[in-house]
Amino acid sequence: MKATIIKLLYPFYQSLRDILPIVAVIAFFQLFILRQPLPDIVEIVVGALLVVIGLTLFLRGLEMGLFPLGENMAYAFARKGSVFWLLLFAFALGFGTTVAEPALTAIAEKAGELAAKAGALGDGEFVQRDYVLGLRITVAVAVGFAIVLGVLRILKGWPIQWLIIGGYVAVMILTPFAPAQIIGIAYDSGGVTTSTITVPLITALGVGLASSIRNRNPIVDGFGLIALASLTPVLFVMGYGILLS
């Protein structure tokens, strides 16, 4: 009985720990530095509780279903030996996890809202929704592409730094052509995508793959997928901006 309660409460504690530093820093500034009354304090507390409850359920659900399944599959595909299926799975995994990523959903919506408010999108009720969806699909395709590239890198043993430096050069070349209002969101999209769902599944794929190939150091070759996945969205979103303008 006691064990079940602990089992149920532990994930709750985990997500509380996620949000506690934020609460502590904001509370300190509110109480000692700003010393102003917080408006809508009830709404904010309720919202923060929803965030904690939401993260708890979300992580628990992932651990029950998606993570063990996805990790096993990542290992299975890594060992299966068929490069075609492996690459197809890699793309699908990157794409699927990114579409489901909650932080990206929220940020893309915010970007759409701002762009619509500034009148950068043109008229129409559905323009904003299309823009947001387009943004998310672009990032998801970019992450899928990054994972395919990363898997090829592990297979061929290419050093990661050449891919990353190549990507940086591409960012430098593309930036002057991108419309000004897309640059900020493009640069941010890389960091936004690599979150709760993407990181564990992608890491499992990388480490599984590197450990199933001889003469590969699982840790050295297993890392690097996240780095690629936070670089390609920058390029793809700038490309999306160029296409739209």
Partner: peptide, 28 residues
Amino acid sequence: KRVLLGFVYVLLGLVCFLVGLEKALFPL
């Protein structure tokens, strides 16, 4: 069964998180 229940948790969790985000994290 467990996997399906997990998906239900994921869905509910995401909804709570996104609503909480709009009510707390963004305004804050």
